[in-house]
Computed example of a mutant assay.
Amino acid sequence: MQSQNDTGAQGQTGDRPLIAEFRAATKRYGAVLAADALSFGIGKGEFLSFLGPSGCGKTTALRMLAGFEVPTSGDVFLDGERVTDVPAYRRPVNMVFQHYALFPHMTVAENIAYGLIQRRPRPDRADVARKVDRALDMVRLSGFGPRRIWEMSGGQQQRVALARAIVNEPKVLLLDEPLAALDRKLRREMQIELQTLQRQLGITFVLVTHDQEEALSMSDRICIMRSGRIVQAGSPLALYDHPINRYVADFVGKSNFIDGVVSAVSPHGGQIETASGFRFEGRVSGVLAKGAKAALSIRPEQIDLAHTVQAGAEPVTVINRIFLGEHTEYLVRHAALGDLLVLVARQAEAAAGGFDPGAAAFVSWKPETALILPQD
Rank of each mutant, 00 (worst) to 15 (best):
residue 225 M to H: 06
residue 233 A to Y: 08
residue 358 G to T: 11
residue 217 S to D: 06
residue 23 R to T: 09
residue 15 D to G: 07
residue 208 V to N: 04
residue 227 S to T: 10
residue 354 G to M: 07
residue 21 E to C: 05
residue 20 A to W: 05
residue 14 G to F: 05
residue 353 G to W: 12
residue 252 V to C: 10
residue 94 N to V: 14
residue 329 E to A: 05
residue 214 E to K: 02
residue 299 R to C: 00
residue 23 R to W: 12
residue 333 R to Q: 11
residue 266 S to C: 09
residue 190 M to K: 00
residue 94 N to M: 15
residue 207 L to D: 02
residue 328 T to W: 14
residue 311 A to I: 14
residue 132 V to Y: 01
residue 65 L to M: 10
residue 72 T to W: 00
residue 25 A to L: 03
residue 212 Q to C: 02
residue 114 Y to P: 10
residue 360 A to I: 02
residue 76 V to C: 09
residue 348 A to P: 13
residue 339 D to K: 06
residue 320 N to H: 11
residue 72 T to P: 00
residue 250 D to K: 07
residue 315 P to Q: 07
residue 240 Y to N: 02
residue 309 V to Y: 13
residue 252 V to W: 08
residue 82 R to G: 04
residue 347 Q to G: 06
residue 46 E to T: 01
residue 214 E to N: 01
residue 317 T to L: 02
residue 241 D to A: 01
residue 316 V to C: 05
residue 63 R to L: 09
residue 269 G to E: 01
residue 140 R to N: 11
residue 323 F to P: 10
residue 248 V to F: 04
residue 214 E to P: 00
residue 174 L to P: 04
residue 87 P to I: 08
residue 332 V to E: 09
residue 68 F to L: 12
residue 333 R to E: 11
residue 332 V to R: 08
residue 229 R to G: 03
residue 170 P to L: 11
residue 333 R to Y: 07
residue 351 A to K: 13
residue 306 A to L: 06
residue 95 M to P: 10
residue 266 S to L: 07
residue 96 V to T: 12
residue 336 A to Y: 09
residue 185 K to P: 04
residue 255 S to E: 02
residue 86 V to T: 13
residue 286 G to S: 09
residue 51 L to C: 04
residue 103 F to Y: 08
residue 141 L to D: 05
residue 286 G to K: 00
residue 294 A to S: 04
residue 242 H to N: 04
residue 147 R to Y: 10
residue 35 A to P: 01
